[in-house]
């Protein structure tokens, strides 16, 4: 991102839009990537409940995958999955 001059930014340190951090890809931090065995997944959504990075994608009450752009690979989802359908693979 090109850094802006003082005349081009809102005053007072204000960030005038919500959720702009999504542009910052924390997925680059990852050394292990969560991979799900879709057949085993029971869509209990516990992984969604415990994800610190809002990186479990859910649609129509079903787990649909990971937001790899932001998932930091902490491994909590794999650790708490009751049916062990998520494993952590080395990047």
């Amino acid at each position: 991102m090109k850094k802006k001059g003082w005349k081009e930014i809102p005053i007072g340190g204000l960030i005038d839009k919500g959720g702009t951090a999504a542009e910052y890809k924390t997925g680059d931090w990852r050394t292990f990537r969560p991979v799900r065995d879709e057949k085993k997944c029971i869509h209990c959504l516990l992984c969604w409940m415990y994800c610190p990075d809002s990186s479990i994608l859910v649609k129509d009450k079903k787990m649909t995958g990971f937001d790899y752009e932001h998932c930091k690979g902490c491994g909590i989802c794999a650790s708490i999955c009751p049916v062990k359908c998520i494993k952590m693979d080395k990047e």
Binding site: A21, K25, T26, P52, S54, H70, K72, G73, G75
Partner: peptide
């Protein structure tokens, strides 16, 4: 609380906030 924040991987704070 959207993604892209820079809390440590595995941080409890954002889990608490989301809940």
């Amino acid at each position: 609380l959207g993604p892209g924040h820079r809390l440590c991987a595995g941080c409890g704070a954002s889990i608490a906030v989301r809940q």
